[in-house]
């Protein structure tokens, strides 16, 4: 052991003094060993309790995990756009329905007049420029949700779910809902 170690040390010293040795051996071998480099052994450790590890390190690390990107990165397609719109239109309609029901109940306490006659009379005084777009919008929420729901109910029977059919029925619903909404708004 000792002679071998001495030889090693001598060799190292030689290598430091005379870097020409480097050229005598393959470069890859040099890269894979530390024979000619000064080793750094700067180590600091600290003991972390399991609680501390989960609460400080793991909890913080979880905050920097990748997050799913927002919907805007997806290509707009008739399939998922109409599916989302079905929910959005339903929520709008339901919200209006709920707000009206609650306000009608609370009207006496709030001093409001939610009777149909009063509402009809006050709506009649609005200018057409506001009335028509509002009616068209509300009508479209209703017609779209209604027509598109038929597609969803058909899909629930596992039919008409080929890509081409979904595209066709989708655009049909778009056309039908817009046309019928405009028709209803003109009533």
């Amino acid at each position: 052991m000792l002679p071998q170690r001495m030889a090693q040390q001598t060799l190292r010293r030689l290598a430091v003094q005379n870097p020409a040795y480097r050229f005598a051996i393959p470069t890859a071998a040099v890269a894979s060993t530390n024979a000619f480099r000064l080793q750094r052994r700067l180590v600091a450790t600290q003991s972390v309790s399991p609680e501390e590890a989960t609460e400080s390190i793991l909890a913080k690390q979880r905050l920097v995990r990748p997050v799913a990107p927002h919907l805007s990165i997806y290509k707009p397609q008739i399939t998922w756009y109409l599916s989302a719109l079905e929910r959005v239109t339903g929520c709008f309609l339901s919200a209006g329905f709920y707000v009206f029901g609650t306000l009608y109940l609370a009207a006496p306490m709030l001093g409001l007049h939610m009777e149909s006659a009063v509402m009809a009379a006050s709506f009649a005084t609005w200018p057409l420029l506001i009335k028509f777009p509002l009616k068209a919008f509300v009508a479209w929420l209703f017609t779209f949700h209604g027509f598109n729901s038929l597609r969803h109910l058909v899909w629930d029977t596992a039919s008409a779910i080929q890509n081409g059919t979904v595209n066709k029925t989708g655009w049909t619903v778009v056309g039908l809902s817009v046309a019928s909404a405009l028709g209803l708004a003109m009533l």
């Binding site: 793991l58 909890a59 913080k60 979880r62 905050l63 995990r65 997050v67 799913a68 990107p69 927002h70 919907l71 805007s72």
Partner: peptide, 9 residues
């Protein structure tokens, strides 16, 4: 814009 950014863990 992340759709659901992580809340305090």
């Amino acid at each position: 814009r992340s759709i659901l950014p992580p809340l305090p863990q």
